[in-house]
């Protein structure tokens, strides 16, 4: 089966990619001046105390050995302990990853259908006032950086109008509606950052497919514009659309770093930023690895969707 072989190849290279990234992450922290032990003691270090901690953390052993140990542990979601709090990192991350995913998924649930729908309407009513207005608006909202959009929205809707909270606080006891209300502004900030890109590329992909000869055939069969767009153009535009959507979803997970900081939301991005300021290296490593994995898994998904959307691969040539 051609499809299975192709899929297996993609998955294999995804794993290779992940492995290379793990090497990069590990060696990057290895290359930093001073090791964990000297970081922990900061200014107050004495050579003896540093040496003792190095022994305790196993830093006197060769890096290859420590890398393999770290990798083996990471594969079991055991990232060691945080230097700042001494709590297991997996515990630290679990809750925050959930919150980040909540934010990213809520945004995705709003952004993806909206971008697809608006992209299709723009294609259908190409060069109309609607098309031009939406395209201009998309460029306007995508252009400023997220921290600007975030503060801007917070200023108007939280400070001036008081409709939504400026700081996100979610508790397990909140109802779904309350949660959505609480995370509304950061969601919209993220939406602004990725909607325009997805919408415009959906439109571009559909318009390029509409140039194909089989669209002319469909028109000359007397089909309606709507049917041509949905039945004839869309299935052939799935691969490029899936790619742009997935890249934007990956961006959502990573883009939360800025937005979480702006809205002071205790998610994974905020954790990473805090860990950088406190030089909590094991936590930074763990967060980087999670972000990298998200990117790779999502890109792999886009590849799989493109492969499966291609009838030549799904159905082999008849003998």
């Amino acid at each position: 089966m051609a499809v299975v072989r192709l899929l297996a190849t993609r998955v294999f290279w995804g794993i290779v990619c992940l492995w290379i990234i793990s090497v990069l992450i590990f060696s990057a922290t290895e290359l930093l001046p001073g090791d964990l032990a000297s970081v922990v003691f900061g200014q107050a270090k004495t050579p003896e105390a540093v040496e003792a901690l190095r022994k305790e953390l196993g830093l006197d052993r060769p890096p290859q050995e420590r890398y393999l140990e770290w990798l083996a542990a990471a594969a079991r979601f055991d990232f060691g302990r945080s230097l700042a709090t001494q709590r297991p990192i997996s515990q630290l991350i679990g809750k925050r990853l959930q919150r980040t995913l909540l934010l990213a998924l809520t945004t995705a649930c709003m952004a993806v259908p909206l971008a697809l729908l608006v992209g299709m309407l723009c294609t259908l009513w190409r060069d109309s006032t609607f098309d031009r207005a939406v395209n201009t608006a998309a460029v306007v909202v995508i252009s400023p950086p997220e921290f600007f959009t975030g503060y801007f929205l917070a200023f108007f809707f939280a400070v001036k109008l008081g409709w939504f909270p400026a700081v996100m606080l979610t508790t397990p006891s909140m109802s779904f509606a309350e949660v959505v209300h609480a995370i509304f502004l950061p969601c919209v900030t993220l939406l602004f950052a990725c909607f325009g890109h997805m919408m415009r590329l959906t439109r571009a992909a559909l318009i390029s497919v509409l140039e194909d000869p089989y669209i002319e055939t469909a028109r000359l069969k007397g089909l309606s514009s709507r049917r041509i767009l949905l039945v004839h153009a869309l299935p052939n535009a799935i691969a490029p659309i899936a790619n742009v959507i997935v890249i934007n979803l990956a961006y959502l997970v990573v883009g939360v770093i800025v937005v979480e900081t702006v809205f002071n939301y205790p998610g994974l991005g905020k954790l990473m930023v805090d860990s950088i300021s406190s030089r909590d290296i094991p936590v930074i490593q763990a967060c980087s690895l999670i972000f990298a994995t998200t990117y790779i898994v999502l890109n792999l998904t886009a590849d799989l969707i493109s492969l499966l959307a291609n009838p030549k691969l799904r159905h082999a040539v008849a003998a």
Binding site: Y214, S224, V231, P311
Partner: peptide, 23 residues
């Protein structure tokens, strides 16, 4: 469009390109 495909029809030069590959 009410006429096309019913009372009038078109045969294109390259049928390979004129059929939608997805259906």
């Amino acid at each position: 469009s009410s006429l096309r495909g019913v009372r009038m029809a078109y045969v294109a030069q390259s049928a390979a390109a004129a059929f939608n590959p997805a259906h």
